[in-house]
Structure formats: structure tokens, C-alpha cells
């Protein structure tokens, strides 16, 4: 091992979200990575910080009708519609039959009422296999209700407050970009007891087939992901990082280490990789190696040293020594 490689190996990429300790600051985005097992043959599970499972609701859901996907410039639209077997079946089968993996497992909870969020969270968080909970209050693809929560700061606060009482585990609240003031929603979530914020969910969008004169998605509207939304996501992280002290999981179109670095510099403590796994499931481990090299080359010892460095208004509680500006 050369001197520089030895230096890179010493770089600390571990981060904490509430009490959740991640060996790497990389999560696999909910809905993009199944249960993790679908990708296990192609990715190195030891190089993944955590997997956010597909969202589960109280009752089974068939999901939206096809087509559910449309390729768009630099991204894609999806409208899956939270297809899932419901919490009972999910715990009895999906989770019970899960293969143990070195990554941290974050359960994702979706719902249509404040009580449903609390009920499903309580059930899911009680499982020893679940290391943390992500509250999906921002799914844009389920009629009107799904996104209502994250689009109303007061409602976000109510959900988070009630859910907070059901578990001690780290609670990550996933915010919607489809709002006027994402910082206001972020503050409500923090005040209500969120441990971390996932920023952002997909951006609402639509595509139309000019031959059939019909929307291309079965659900008519969908959520846009991929590099097309990256600048929107970076700004959202930047704004939220000025407004709250809790850590942020930055996400939206991350495909390379450079993309990931933008999010850290804007104020994210960790990043989440979603659509990029559809290009190549080895992208997350390349990002981890890229971060290690980036920090090592600059003589930096930990990822925390760059968090928020491009953000003059950065309010994070974990401001690191040596931070400039």
C-alpha cells in the first residue's frame, strides 16, 4: 500500500443520523432498491451504508395501473402508487424472510392518515431488523392524500409528533420539493421531533403521448427523478440546512461522487442514491471510493469536515472544526 492509499484508508466516512450509525454516508433510496436483495448479486453489500426499504402502508395496495414509468431527458417519471402487501403480511413474510446484510435497514412508512402513520411506524419500528424509520409523507403518486402531509407544515408537524411517540429509533422525515417554502416544512418536522430529514422526494411531472393524445403514465402524473432534478435538490438541501440543526440526507439525481459532493457541501450529512442504481448497481460503491479519494487527496480526515462548507447560512449542530466562512 502506498502512502496516499494508506491515508485514504484512514478517512472516516461514518456518519450518524440521530442514533443511527452508518459506516458509509450512502443510503439506497426507498422504492429504488426493493428490499436490497434484488441488487445483492450486483453490488457489494459491505460498501453500502443503508437501504431504505420500499414504503409500506397499513393495508395492501395494488398500486397504480401501467404504464408506471416514462424515460425523460436526464431522468425518468414514475408513478408506482405504493404497491405493497400491507404491514401484517410485510412483517410476517418480507421482513421475517430477510437475509441478514451488513448495511443498516431503514423501514419506510407511508399512509393516508395521521393515525395510519403512527400505527405502521409502531409495528415496523418494533422489529429488531429495522434500524431506523423513514416517514414518506411526500409520495406524489397516490391520489391527493399522499403528498398532502409534506405540503402542509402544520400537518407535517402533527404526523411527526404522533409518530415520534411510537418509537425511540431514528426518525427520518422525507420532504417534498413540491412546496413553496421547504424550509418551513423542515422546521416543523424538526420541532416535532424528527431526527433527520430526507431532501428531496420526486418532483411532480407529466408526459403526454402525441400519437394517442393521452398522458403516458397510467396515473396521469408522476414523480420526476434523476439528474434532471439535481439542481432543485441541491438548492432544497441548501435552504433546509440553513433552517434546521438536524442532519439532512441529500438526494435527487446523484450519479457520481461529484454529484454527491455537491450535496455534502450544501449541508447534507449523508446522501441517498436512487435512480442511478438503474444505470449500474455498482454506482453507490464507486461513490464511496470516490469520497474516500476526494477527502484523502485534500488531507481531510472525515466526511463531516465538508458538510455545509458551501453554505454560509449552515445551521447544522455538527459544525466541524476547521470550517471556513
Amino acid at each position: 500500500m502506498s502512502g496516499s492509499q494508506a491515508a485514504y484508508a484512514a478517512v472516516d466516512l461514518s456518519v450518524k443520523l440521530g442514533t443511527l450509525e452508518l459506516a458509509y454516508p450512502t443510503l439506497m433510496g426507498s422504492g429504488c432498491y426493493g428490499s436490497g436483495e434484488e441488487f445483492a448479486p450486483f453490488a457489494d453489500p459491505a460498501k453500502i451504508g443503508g437501504v431504505v426499504l420500499k414504503s409500506v402502508t397499513q393495508r395492501p395496495r395494488l398500486g397504480n395501473r401501467a404504464p408506471r414509468l416514462v424515460a425523460t431527458p436526464s431522468g425518468m417519471l414514475n408513478a408506482i402508487g405504493l404497491q405493497n402487501p400491507g404491514i401484517d403480511w410485510y412483517l410476517e413474510h418480507d421482513l421475517a424472510e430477510r437475509v441478514p446484510r451488513p448495511w443498516k435497514t431503514i423501514g419506510s412508512v407511508a399512509g393516508f392518515s395521521v393515525d395510519e402513520y403512527a400505527y405502521v411506524t409502531q409495528r415496523l419500528a418494533a422489529q429488531p431488523e429495522i434500524d431506523a424509520i423513514e416517514l414518506n409523507v411526500s409520495c406524489p403518486n397516490v391520489a391527493a392524500e399522499g403528498e398532502t402531509f409534506a405540503c402542509d407544515p402544520k400537518l407535517t408537524g402533527r404526523v411527526v409528533r404522533l409518530v415520534r411517540d411510537t418509537t425511540e429509533k431514528t426518525l427520518i422525515v422525507k420532504l417534498s420539493p413540491n412546496v413553496t417554502d421547504i424550509a418551513a416544512v423542515a422546521r416543523e418536522a424538526e420541532d416535532a421531533g424528527a431526527d433527520a430529514l430526507a431532501v428531496i422526494n420526486t418532483v411532480r411531472g407529466m408526459a403526454i403521448d402525441v400519437d394517442t393524445w393521452r398522458p403516458r403514465l397510467g396515473n396521469v402524473t408522476g414523480g420526476l427523478s434523476g439528474p434532471a432534478i439535481r439542481p432543485i435538490a441541491v438548492l432544497a438541501v441548501y435552504e433546509v440546512a440553513c433552517a434546521v440543526k438536524i442532519p439532512i440526507v441529500g438526494q435527487g439525481g446523484i450519479e457520481t461522487v461529484t454529484d454527491a459532493l455537491e450535496f455534502f457541501l450544501a449541508g447534507a450529512t449523508a446522501v441517498s442514491i436512487g435512480t442511478a442504481n438503474f444505470i449500474d448497481p455498482r454506482i453507490p460503491e464507486r461513490i464511496v471510493e470516490g469520497l474516500r479519494a476526494y477527502l484523502g487527496e485534500r488531507g481531510l480526515l472525515s466526511i463531516g469536515q465538508i458538510v455545509g462548507q458551501a453554505n454560509r447560512g449552515f445551521a447544522g449542530a455538527h459544525r466541524c472544526e476547521g470550517r471556513e466562512g
Binding site: 422504492g31 429504488c32 432498491y33 426493493g34 434484488e38 441488487f39 450486483f42 420500499k54 398500486g63 395501473r65 401501467a66 404504464p67 408506471r68 414509468l69 416514462v70 424515460a71 425518468m76 414514475n78 408506482i80 404497491q83 435512480t275 442504481n277 438503474f278 448497481p281
Partner: peptide, 17 residues
């Protein structure tokens, strides 16, 4: 024939009833 994203069963984007 259907549009795929992941191709490995992870995203539930390519369904048929």
C-alpha cells in the same frame, strides 16, 4: 414488452395484472 427501470425486480415499475 414493458418499460423497465431496474430490470431486477426492485422498482415495481413494469407491472402487468
Amino acid at each position: 414488452e414493458e418499460t423497465f427501470a431496474c430490470g431486477v425486480g426492485g422498482c415495481w415499475g413494469c407491472v402487468v395484472p
